[in-house]
Simulated assay, not measured.
Amino acid sequence: MTQISSIQTNSEANAVSSGKTILTVNNLKVHFPLGSDGFFKKNDRFVKAVDGVSFEVREGETLGIVGESGCGKSTLGRAVLQLISPTDGKVVWLGQDIAGLDSKTMRPHRKSMQIIFQDPLASLNPRRTIGDIIAEPLMTFYPQLSKQERRDKVKAMMDKVGLLPQMINRYPHEFSGGQCQRIGIARAMILQPKLIVCDEPVSALDVSIQAQIINLLTELQKEFGMSLLFISHDLSVVRHVSHRVMVLYLGKVMELADKDSIYRDPKHPYTKALISAVPIPDPDIERQKEQVVLKGDLPSPINPPSGCVFRTRCNYAESRCAEKVPVLEQTGVDHQVSCLKWKEITD
Protein backbone atom coordinates (compact mmCIF):
# COMPACT_ATOMS: atom_id res chain seq x y z
CA MET A 1 0.00 0.00 0.00
CA THR A 2 1.09 3.55 -0.67
CA GLN A 3 2.22 5.59 2.31
CA ILE A 4 -0.84 7.82 2.56
CA SER A 5 0.60 10.09 5.22
CA SER A 6 3.26 11.26 2.79
CA ILE A 7 0.84 12.09 -0.02
CA GLN A 8 -0.26 15.69 -0.32
CA THR A 9 -4.05 15.92 -0.21
CA ASN A 10 -5.59 17.92 -3.04
CA SER A 11 -7.25 20.70 -1.08
CA GLU A 12 -8.93 22.33 -4.08
CA ALA A 13 -11.62 19.69 -4.59
CA ASN A 14 -14.49 22.05 -3.88
CA ALA A 15 -13.07 24.86 -6.01
CA VAL A 16 -13.21 22.91 -9.27
CA SER A 17 -16.91 22.07 -8.97
CA SER A 18 -17.68 25.33 -10.80
CA GLY A 19 -14.93 24.85 -13.38
CA LYS A 20 -15.52 24.84 -17.14
CA THR A 21 -16.29 21.42 -18.66
CA ILE A 22 -13.60 20.51 -21.19
CA LEU A 23 -14.46 16.84 -21.80
CA THR A 24 -17.88 15.23 -22.15
CA VAL A 25 -18.18 11.50 -22.72
CA ASN A 26 -21.67 10.30 -23.64
CA ASN A 27 -22.73 6.64 -23.86
CA LEU A 28 -19.25 5.52 -24.92
CA LYS A 29 -18.91 1.90 -25.99
CA VAL A 30 -15.85 -0.12 -26.96
CA HIS A 31 -16.72 -3.64 -28.13
CA PHE A 32 -14.01 -5.90 -29.50
CA PRO A 33 -15.23 -8.54 -32.00
CA LEU A 34 -14.09 -12.11 -31.41
CA GLY A 35 -12.56 -14.22 -34.15
CA SER A 36 -14.57 -16.47 -36.43
CA ASP A 37 -15.57 -19.95 -35.22
CA GLY A 38 -14.77 -21.36 -38.63
CA PHE A 39 -14.80 -20.65 -42.34
CA PHE A 40 -18.56 -21.08 -42.71
CA LYS A 41 -19.62 -19.84 -39.29
CA LYS A 42 -19.52 -16.15 -38.47
CA ASN A 43 -18.90 -15.22 -34.85
CA ASP A 44 -21.03 -12.26 -33.82
CA ARG A 45 -19.87 -12.20 -30.19
CA PHE A 46 -18.09 -9.22 -28.71
CA VAL A 47 -15.99 -8.39 -25.67
CA LYS A 48 -17.85 -5.45 -24.16
CA ALA A 49 -14.87 -3.71 -22.55
CA VAL A 50 -16.68 -0.38 -22.19
CA ASP A 51 -20.46 -0.45 -22.41
CA GLY A 52 -22.27 2.88 -22.27
CA VAL A 53 -20.10 5.11 -20.06
CA SER A 54 -20.97 8.79 -19.60
CA PHE A 55 -19.15 11.46 -17.56
CA GLU A 56 -17.67 14.95 -17.68
CA VAL A 57 -14.28 16.35 -16.75
CA ARG A 58 -13.85 19.94 -15.65
CA GLU A 59 -10.92 22.25 -16.12
CA GLY A 60 -8.22 21.63 -13.51
CA GLU A 61 -10.03 18.60 -12.09
CA THR A 62 -8.82 15.09 -11.30
CA LEU A 63 -11.37 12.37 -11.98
CA GLY A 64 -10.33 9.09 -10.36
CA ILE A 65 -11.39 5.89 -12.13
CA VAL A 66 -11.41 2.74 -10.01
CA GLY A 67 -12.49 -0.87 -10.33
CA GLU A 68 -11.14 -4.41 -10.53
CA SER A 69 -8.88 -5.64 -13.33
CA GLY A 70 -10.96 -6.27 -16.42
CA CYS A 71 -13.53 -3.57 -15.69
CA GLY A 72 -12.50 -1.43 -18.67
CA LYS A 73 -10.57 1.39 -16.98
CA SER A 74 -7.57 1.45 -19.32
CA THR A 75 -9.71 0.83 -22.40
CA LEU A 76 -11.86 3.81 -21.42
CA GLY A 77 -8.82 6.05 -21.04
CA ARG A 78 -7.45 5.05 -24.43
CA ALA A 79 -10.84 5.48 -26.08
CA VAL A 80 -11.06 9.03 -24.73
CA LEU A 81 -7.72 9.77 -26.39
CA GLN A 82 -8.83 7.96 -29.55
CA LEU A 83 -5.94 5.52 -29.26
CA ILE A 84 -8.75 2.94 -29.54
CA SER A 85 -11.68 3.64 -31.84
CA PRO A 86 -15.00 3.63 -29.97
CA THR A 87 -17.77 1.37 -31.21
CA ASP A 88 -20.40 3.98 -30.37
CA GLY A 89 -20.94 7.13 -28.35
CA LYS A 90 -19.50 10.63 -28.22
CA VAL A 91 -16.26 12.10 -26.90
CA VAL A 92 -16.69 15.87 -26.95
CA TRP A 93 -13.34 17.58 -26.43
CA LEU A 94 -13.38 21.38 -26.08
CA GLY A 95 -16.75 21.49 -27.82
CA GLN A 96 -15.92 19.13 -30.71
CA ASP A 97 -16.89 15.48 -31.04
CA ILE A 98 -13.63 13.64 -31.72
CA ALA A 99 -14.98 10.07 -31.55
CA GLY A 100 -13.95 8.10 -34.61
CA LEU A 101 -11.79 10.81 -36.17
CA ASP A 102 -9.04 9.53 -38.47
CA SER A 103 -5.42 10.02 -37.45
CA LYS A 104 -4.90 13.07 -39.67
CA THR A 105 -7.97 14.91 -38.37
CA MET A 106 -7.21 13.87 -34.81
CA ARG A 107 -3.60 15.02 -34.90
CA PRO A 108 -4.18 18.69 -33.89
CA HIS A 109 -6.01 17.51 -30.76
CA ARG A 110 -3.07 15.35 -29.66
CA LYS A 111 -1.25 18.46 -28.58
CA SER A 112 -3.70 19.06 -25.73
CA MET A 113 -4.26 15.40 -24.74
CA GLN A 114 -1.48 13.18 -23.41
CA ILE A 115 -1.03 9.91 -21.51
CA ILE A 116 1.27 8.54 -18.80
CA PHE A 117 1.63 4.76 -18.98
CA GLN A 118 1.70 2.13 -16.25
CA ASP A 119 5.13 0.63 -17.01
CA PRO A 120 7.58 3.54 -17.05
CA LEU A 121 10.53 1.73 -18.64
CA ALA A 122 8.51 -0.12 -21.30
CA SER A 123 7.00 3.17 -22.48
CA LEU A 124 10.42 4.67 -23.29
CA ASN A 125 12.46 3.95 -26.43
CA PRO A 126 15.67 2.28 -25.17
CA ARG A 127 17.63 3.46 -28.23
CA ARG A 128 17.02 7.16 -27.65
CA THR A 129 18.38 9.50 -25.01
CA ILE A 130 15.88 10.93 -22.55
CA GLY A 131 16.49 14.35 -24.10
CA ASP A 132 15.26 13.06 -27.46
CA ILE A 133 12.35 11.21 -25.81
CA ILE A 134 11.09 14.30 -24.00
CA ALA A 135 11.69 16.51 -27.06
CA GLU A 136 9.77 14.25 -29.47
CA PRO A 137 6.40 16.03 -29.01
CA LEU A 138 8.12 19.37 -29.61
CA MET A 139 9.59 18.09 -32.89
CA THR A 140 6.12 16.95 -33.97
CA PHE A 141 4.12 20.05 -33.07
CA TYR A 142 6.78 22.78 -33.07
CA PRO A 143 9.17 21.87 -35.91
CA GLN A 144 10.15 25.54 -36.25
CA LEU A 145 12.06 25.43 -32.96
CA SER A 146 15.83 25.25 -33.22
CA LYS A 147 17.76 22.39 -31.65
CA GLN A 148 18.97 24.66 -28.85
CA GLU A 149 15.45 25.96 -28.16
CA ARG A 150 14.14 22.40 -27.86
CA ARG A 151 17.04 21.49 -25.62
CA ASP A 152 16.37 24.47 -23.33
CA LYS A 153 12.68 23.54 -23.03
CA VAL A 154 13.56 19.93 -22.28
CA LYS A 155 16.03 20.92 -19.55
CA ALA A 156 13.48 23.26 -17.98
CA MET A 157 10.86 20.49 -17.90
CA MET A 158 13.38 17.99 -16.51
CA ASP A 159 14.03 20.39 -13.66
CA LYS A 160 10.28 20.68 -12.94
CA VAL A 161 9.84 16.91 -12.68
CA GLY A 162 12.88 16.44 -10.44
CA LEU A 163 15.50 15.29 -12.96
CA LEU A 164 18.94 16.85 -13.19
CA PRO A 165 19.30 18.68 -16.55
CA GLN A 166 22.80 17.25 -16.98
CA MET A 167 21.19 13.79 -17.36
CA ILE A 168 19.78 14.83 -20.74
CA ASN A 169 22.10 12.60 -22.78
CA ARG A 170 21.57 9.43 -20.76
CA TYR A 171 19.48 6.43 -21.83
CA PRO A 172 16.41 4.98 -20.07
CA HIS A 173 18.20 1.88 -18.77
CA GLU A 174 20.44 4.13 -16.68
CA PHE A 175 17.50 5.28 -14.55
CA SER A 176 15.39 3.73 -11.79
CA GLY A 177 11.70 3.00 -12.21
CA GLY A 178 10.70 6.19 -10.42
CA GLN A 179 13.06 8.27 -12.56
CA CYS A 180 11.72 6.64 -15.74
CA GLN A 181 8.20 7.62 -14.71
CA ARG A 182 9.41 11.19 -14.21
CA ILE A 183 10.75 11.05 -17.78
CA GLY A 184 7.32 9.87 -18.96
CA ILE A 185 5.67 12.71 -17.05
CA ALA A 186 8.09 15.23 -18.58
CA ARG A 187 7.29 13.92 -22.06
CA ALA A 188 3.55 14.25 -21.37
CA MET A 189 3.94 17.74 -19.89
CA ILE A 190 6.33 19.26 -22.44
CA LEU A 191 3.42 20.55 -24.57
CA GLN A 192 1.51 21.73 -21.47
CA PRO A 193 -1.64 19.75 -22.35
CA LYS A 194 -5.11 20.41 -20.97
CA LEU A 195 -5.76 16.73 -20.18
CA ILE A 196 -3.51 13.85 -19.13
CA VAL A 197 -4.71 10.27 -18.79
CA CYS A 198 -2.72 8.65 -15.98
CA ASP A 199 -3.03 4.90 -16.57
CA GLU A 200 -2.00 3.41 -13.21
CA PRO A 201 1.11 5.60 -13.11
CA VAL A 202 2.38 4.34 -9.73
CA SER A 203 1.31 0.68 -9.61
CA ALA A 204 4.67 -0.56 -10.99
CA LEU A 205 6.73 1.51 -8.54
CA ASP A 206 8.08 0.82 -5.07
CA VAL A 207 5.92 2.02 -2.19
CA SER A 208 8.52 4.59 -1.16
CA ILE A 209 8.46 6.13 -4.66
CA GLN A 210 4.70 6.14 -5.23
CA ALA A 211 4.00 9.09 -2.93
CA GLN A 212 6.73 11.15 -4.62
CA ILE A 213 5.18 10.65 -8.06
CA ILE A 214 1.68 11.41 -6.78
CA ASN A 215 2.90 14.60 -5.12
CA LEU A 216 4.70 15.59 -8.32
CA LEU A 217 1.51 15.21 -10.39
CA THR A 218 -0.43 17.25 -7.84
CA GLU A 219 2.17 20.05 -7.89
CA LEU A 220 2.24 20.11 -11.70
CA GLN A 221 -1.55 20.26 -11.82
CA LYS A 222 -1.59 23.26 -9.49
CA GLU A 223 1.06 25.03 -11.58
CA PHE A 224 -0.25 24.27 -15.08
CA GLY A 225 -3.96 23.73 -14.37
CA MET A 226 -4.38 20.59 -16.49
CA SER A 227 -7.10 18.02 -15.86
CA LEU A 228 -6.30 14.40 -15.00
CA LEU A 229 -8.05 11.10 -15.58
CA PHE A 230 -6.38 9.08 -12.83
CA ILE A 231 -6.80 5.31 -13.27
CA SER A 232 -5.80 3.17 -10.31
CA HIS A 233 -6.53 0.04 -8.27
CA ASP A 234 -5.43 1.79 -5.09
CA LEU A 235 -8.47 3.52 -3.61
CA SER A 236 -6.33 5.15 -0.94
CA VAL A 237 -4.30 6.98 -3.59
CA VAL A 238 -7.41 7.86 -5.59
CA ARG A 239 -9.01 9.41 -2.51
CA HIS A 240 -6.05 11.72 -1.96
CA VAL A 241 -5.47 12.87 -5.54
CA SER A 242 -9.00 13.03 -6.97
CA HIS A 243 -11.73 15.62 -6.82
CA ARG A 244 -14.35 13.13 -7.99
CA VAL A 245 -14.34 9.34 -8.26
CA MET A 246 -16.00 7.08 -10.85
CA VAL A 247 -16.44 3.38 -10.06
CA LEU A 248 -16.46 0.99 -13.04
CA TYR A 249 -17.65 -2.59 -13.12
CA LEU A 250 -17.69 -4.71 -16.28
CA GLY A 251 -17.56 -1.66 -18.51
CA LYS A 252 -20.37 0.24 -16.78
CA VAL A 253 -20.45 3.09 -14.27
CA MET A 254 -21.68 1.94 -10.87
CA GLU A 255 -21.22 5.20 -8.99
CA LEU A 256 -19.90 8.70 -9.64
CA ALA A 257 -19.50 11.33 -6.92
CA ASP A 258 -17.13 13.79 -5.31
CA LYS A 259 -14.44 11.99 -3.36
CA ASP A 260 -15.69 12.94 0.10
CA SER A 261 -19.22 11.72 -0.56
CA ILE A 262 -18.22 8.45 -2.16
CA TYR A 263 -15.86 7.47 0.67
CA ARG A 264 -18.03 8.75 3.49
CA ASP A 265 -21.39 7.53 2.18
CA PRO A 266 -21.10 5.05 -0.72
CA LYS A 267 -24.45 4.10 -2.24
CA HIS A 268 -23.62 1.16 -4.48
CA PRO A 269 -22.85 -2.27 -2.94
CA TYR A 270 -19.82 -2.64 -5.23
CA THR A 271 -18.39 0.67 -4.02
CA LYS A 272 -19.01 -0.40 -0.43
CA ALA A 273 -17.05 -3.61 -1.04
CA LEU A 274 -14.11 -1.78 -2.64
CA ILE A 275 -13.89 0.76 0.18
CA SER A 276 -14.17 -1.91 2.89
CA ALA A 277 -11.12 -3.62 1.36
CA VAL A 278 -8.92 -0.56 1.93
CA PRO A 279 -6.81 -1.23 5.05
CA ILE A 280 -6.88 1.30 7.89
CA PRO A 281 -3.54 1.97 9.66
CA ASP A 282 -5.18 1.88 13.12
CA PRO A 283 -5.46 -1.85 14.05
CA ASP A 284 -8.37 -1.25 16.46
CA ILE A 285 -10.45 0.55 13.83
CA GLU A 286 -9.45 -2.03 11.21
CA ARG A 287 -10.79 -4.89 13.37
CA GLN A 288 -14.06 -3.10 14.08
CA LYS A 289 -14.94 -1.91 10.57
CA GLU A 290 -17.60 -3.69 8.54
CA GLN A 291 -16.18 -6.14 6.02
CA VAL A 292 -18.03 -6.48 2.71
CA VAL A 293 -16.85 -9.59 0.85
CA LEU A 294 -17.67 -10.02 -2.83
CA LYS A 295 -18.82 -13.50 -3.81
CA GLY A 296 -17.65 -15.22 -6.97
CA ASP A 297 -15.45 -13.86 -9.73
CA LEU A 298 -15.84 -11.11 -12.29
CA PRO A 299 -18.17 -12.39 -15.06
CA SER A 300 -16.95 -12.57 -18.65
CA PRO A 301 -17.42 -9.36 -20.64
CA ILE A 302 -18.27 -11.61 -23.60
CA ASN A 303 -21.48 -12.73 -21.93
CA PRO A 304 -22.29 -10.26 -19.11
CA PRO A 305 -25.24 -10.91 -16.78
CA SER A 306 -28.65 -9.63 -17.85
CA GLY A 307 -30.12 -6.62 -16.11
CA CYS A 308 -27.64 -5.28 -13.57
CA VAL A 309 -24.19 -6.63 -14.45
CA PHE A 310 -23.22 -6.68 -10.76
CA ARG A 311 -26.19 -8.78 -9.60
CA THR A 312 -24.32 -12.14 -9.68
CA ARG A 313 -22.01 -10.91 -6.92
CA CYS A 314 -24.41 -8.63 -5.05
CA ASN A 315 -25.70 -9.54 -1.58
CA TYR A 316 -28.85 -7.49 -2.19
CA ALA A 317 -29.85 -8.84 -5.63
CA GLU A 318 -33.41 -9.93 -6.30
CA SER A 319 -35.40 -11.09 -9.34
CA ARG A 320 -35.97 -7.62 -10.80
CA CYS A 321 -32.19 -7.04 -10.88
CA ALA A 322 -31.98 -9.69 -13.62
CA GLU A 323 -34.71 -8.05 -15.68
CA LYS A 324 -34.10 -4.31 -15.53
CA VAL A 325 -30.90 -2.47 -16.46
CA PRO A 326 -30.25 0.28 -13.88
CA VAL A 327 -29.30 3.75 -15.07
CA LEU A 328 -27.27 6.42 -13.34
CA GLU A 329 -29.62 8.16 -10.94
CA GLN A 330 -29.00 11.44 -9.15
CA THR A 331 -28.93 10.83 -5.40
CA GLY A 332 -27.63 14.19 -4.24
CA VAL A 333 -25.45 17.09 -5.27
CA ASP A 334 -22.85 15.71 -7.70
CA HIS A 335 -23.60 12.12 -6.66
CA GLN A 336 -24.94 9.47 -9.06
CA VAL A 337 -25.49 5.75 -8.59
CA SER A 338 -26.58 2.92 -10.89
CA CYS A 339 -28.52 0.56 -8.61
CA LEU A 340 -32.20 -0.42 -8.35
CA LYS A 341 -31.97 -0.86 -4.57
CA TRP A 342 -29.67 1.93 -3.44
CA LYS A 343 -32.37 3.58 -1.31
CA GLU A 344 -33.09 0.33 0.55
CA ILE A 345 -29.38 -0.33 1.07
CA THR A 346 -28.60 3.13 2.46
CA ASP A 347 -31.77 3.63 4.56
Rank of each mutant, 00 (worst) to 15 (best):
M1I: 11
T2C: 13
T2I: 15
I4F: 12
S5I: 04
A13M: 15
A13C: 14
N14E: 15
V16T: 08
V16Q: 03
S17C: 12
S17T: 14
T21Q: 09
I22W: 03
I22N: 03
L23R: 01
L23M: 02
L28G: 06
H31W: 15
F32I: 11
S36A: 14
F39K: 10
F39V: 12
F39Q: 09
F39M: 12
F40G: 12
D44S: 12
K48Q: 13
K48F: 09
G52W: 05
G52F: 03
F55C: 07
V57I: 15
E59R: 06
E61D: 04
T62E: 02
I65T: 02
S74V: 00
A79I: 05
I84P: 07
I84N: 15
P86K: 06
D88Y: 05
V92H: 10
L94M: 15
Q96V: 08
D97M: 05
L101Y: 07
K104V: 06
M106Q: 13
P108K: 02
H109N: 07
R110Y: 10
M113I: 07
D119M: 03
S123L: 00
R127E: 06
R127S: 07
T129H: 08
T129D: 07
I133A: 08
F141R: 03
Y142C: 14
Y142H: 14
Q144D: 12
K147R: 13
K147A: 11
Q148H: 12
A156Y: 13
M158L: 08
M158A: 10
K160D: 15
V161H: 06
R170K: 09
P172A: 14
H173P: 08
G177W: 01
G177N: 02
G184Q: 00
I185P: 00
Q192T: 14
P193F: 11
L195S: 01
E200A: 07
V202T: 02
A204H: 01
A204W: 00
A204L: 01
L205I: 02
D206I: 04
V207R: 06
I209F: 00
A211T: 08
Q212G: 03
Q212R: 01
I213A: 00
L216W: 00
L216S: 01
L216P: 00
Q221S: 11
Q221H: 10
K222R: 08
K222P: 05
G225H: 02
M226F: 12
L228K: 07
I231L: 01
R239Q: 14
H240T: 05
H243D: 15
Y249E: 13
K252W: 10
L256Q: 13
D260E: 15
D260R: 14
K267L: 12
P269W: 11
Y270K: 12
L274R: 11
E286A: 14
R287T: 11
Q291S: 10
V292I: 13
L294T: 04
K295P: 07
G296S: 06
P301W: 01
N303P: 07
S306Y: 04
G307T: 09
V309E: 13
R311E: 13
C314K: 09
A317W: 04
A317I: 03
C321S: 10
C321L: 08
E323H: 08
K324H: 10
P326S: 13
P326A: 15
E329A: 05
H335G: 07
S338A: 15
W342N: 12
I345P: 14
